Each structure stands twice: as structure tokens, then as C-alpha cells.
Simulated assay, not measured.
Amino acid sequence: MVQPVDDGPVTSRRGFFDRPTLGKAVLVIVVYLAYYLLVGRAIGAAFGDEVDEDDVLATGASIFFTLVLPIAIGAVTLLGFSAAIGRLRSIFARRTGSGRPWMWIGPALALIAVVGHAAAADWSDWRPEQLLLIALLGVCVGLAEELATRGLAVDLLRGAGHSERFVMVVSSLLFALMHLTNVLSGMKVNTVLVTVVYTFGFGVCMYLVMRLTGTIWSAIALHAVTDPTTILSSGGIDAGVTHHTGGWSLLTSTATILMVVFGFVAVFLVRGDRRGQTDSAGLSGGGGAAFRR
């Protein structure tokens, strides 16, 4: 017996992330953080003998297993996940950048801080393998953290139709809150809170450089040189540099403080208009209209 054929329209089942929401953007970050921490614990259990617990930067093996390998696995996993849900092309698509000249202030201050850190660093204190691995760490951190926040989170928030200001603030806030996990590594609570404030301002600047250039690669590149130069200048992970003396250190501290202040001020300068509108600051609204392909 021949079954009747339904000639009506055929619709395919939509994936979970094909309906973007704020909650799904938060979920991506939370799951990624849990995964990253679990990977770090697993690597620590397997290669703990290679780690110098007093100074993770002391040897190449310690740097690799404690810092580089977990974030490298996280970056590769995020790339695979982005491809699996069909958002990799959208995240890395080249778009026409737009914005106002004032927006360059934040990225410029971030770059000045990088130059200051590099100039203030005592390069003779570091062996070649340490420098190479710290540079690799920067690349992995830049790729993973930008892909998670300025990539997946921004793409989902824009897809949900949120305003430009909302997307910038929430993605930067998610980036900042990711660093609360530093408490688990033994960092003092007050230091963690300062780090959260700093990373929010830094996140806004990374959002703006992506916004201005039309590509996430610019944010990845600037982020990738920020962490290594900071480590080299301070001599440790998450160590402060504001107590250092000298012209370059003073320049770096000043640029960093101004960058954070700028990040918070930018929240009020960027308008909150919806998709299809253009505000007086020259920004399109949320959703896909903010970047023109």
C-alpha cells in the first residue's frame, strides 16, 4: 500500500544554539570554564611531577603543563564547538569596521601598556625556552578567551537581537567574571576583585578594537601580546607591576589605569539602540546589523 505524500513545506530541526539567548551565552562561558578547570586538574594529576609548585615559570615543563597545555586544549575545543554549532564562520568573518575616532583610545592605551611592559622587562632573566612557551601561552590565551567572549558570546548576544551597549557590557562582564576562578588557584580575594575590574575595562577595549577593525583577529592579536609582556615585566603570573620603578613602568601603570577608566566611560558613550538604528556615536544596533559584511 502506497503511503500518501505530504507536499507541504519541509522544515529541518533547528539546533539548540540556532535560537540565541542571553542564557545560552552565559551557559557557553560557564561550561567552558568548568571544562577548562577539569582539564587543568587532569593534566595536573598526570604530570604533577613536572610542575614546580613554588614557581610555575621556573622550567619549560612547568610552564607547558601548568599553563600552556590546558588553555591550548581549551582553545582547540572552542574552535571545534564553534564549528559544530555552525558559528565558526560567522565569528571569524571579515566585516566592515565602523565607529568613531574616540573608540581607538582604549585599544591604543592597551597597546601602550604592552610596549611599556616589553620595555620594562628584564629579558636577561629569561631562558629561550621560557620565552618561547610564554609567547605560546599568549597566543593560546588570546585565542581561547577572545573566542569564548568576543566570539561565541557576542555572536549569540547579537543573534538574540540585543543592543550594542548590552552586547559590549555583557560580553565584557562575562570575560571579567571568568577570572573569579583565580580564587581556586590561591590568589587573594582582593587581588581577584582588582583583576575583575581590570579585565572588564580590558574586555571593553577588546570589543571596541574588534568593532573598529571588523575582525576578531585584531582582538586576539592584541590580547595575545598583553599577557606575555605582563608576565615578563612582573616576573610572575598575576603579579603586580605598579610597584616597579622607572619610566617605562610608570608609563605602563598610567596607561593601564587610564584604559580601565576608559572602559567604564565607554559604557555610557556607546548608545543602546536596537538593530537597524544608528546612534550618535556611530554604532549600529545589536544583532547582525552591527557589522556589515
Rank of each mutant, 00 (worst) to 15 (best):
V209R: 01
D155P: 01
L232N: 00
Y32V: 02
A239H: 15
G247T: 05
G80H: 08
L111I: 12
V192P: 00
F81N: 00
H162M: 11
A34N: 12
G203S: 11
G97H: 06
V139N: 01
T66H: 11
G142P: 03
G276F: 14
E129A: 13
S124D: 11
G86S: 10
F17Q: 01
E145G: 03
V192W: 05
A160Q: 04
R87V: 06
S12L: 15
G15N: 09
I257A: 14
M259S: 06
A34W: 13
G282T: 02
V5F: 15
L251F: 07
A219F: 03
I85M: 05
P107R: 03
R158G: 01
G236V: 09
T226E: 11
T21W: 03
D54N: 15
R14W: 15
S62A: 09
V139M: 06
V270H: 04
L67M: 13
W104R: 08
M259H: 04
S12C: 14
A135L: 12
L69P: 01
I91A: 05
T199E: 05
F16Q: 08
R211G: 04
F17D: 00
V169M: 07
A118Q: 04
M187D: 10
E53D: 14
A72S: 13
G86E: 06
D49H: 13
T59R: 09
D52K: 12
V225T: 06
T226I: 13
T215V: 08
G276V: 08
N190V: 12
G288N: 12
F200T: 02
V196K: 05
V56K: 06
T181K: 10
I29E: 09
L184N: 10
S233Y: 03
T213H: 12
T77Y: 06
W123G: 00
E146M: 05
T181Y: 15
C140R: 04
G247Y: 08
T11C: 12
M210V: 09
I216P: 00
E164D: 12
F291M: 10
V189E: 10
L109P: 00
G263E: 01
A289H: 14
P128A: 11
H244Q: 13
Y36L: 11
R19S: 13
V192C: 08
G74E: 00
V270C: 10
Y198T: 12
D122S: 07
F16G: 10
V26S: 09
F264E: 10
S124P: 02
Q3T: 14
G246Y: 06
R41A: 15
F64Q: 02
L27F: 12
E146L: 05
A120G: 02
V241T: 13
G186M: 10
L88Q: 05
P128D: 07
A83Y: 14
V68I: 10
G142T: 04
M210T: 09
T77G: 03
V204C: 05
L22Y: 11
R87Y: 10
H223M: 06
G186Y: 11
L174K: 02
A266E: 01
L173F: 13
A119C: 01
G186E: 10
L38M: 14
V170S: 07
R87T: 03
T252Y: 02
W123F: 02
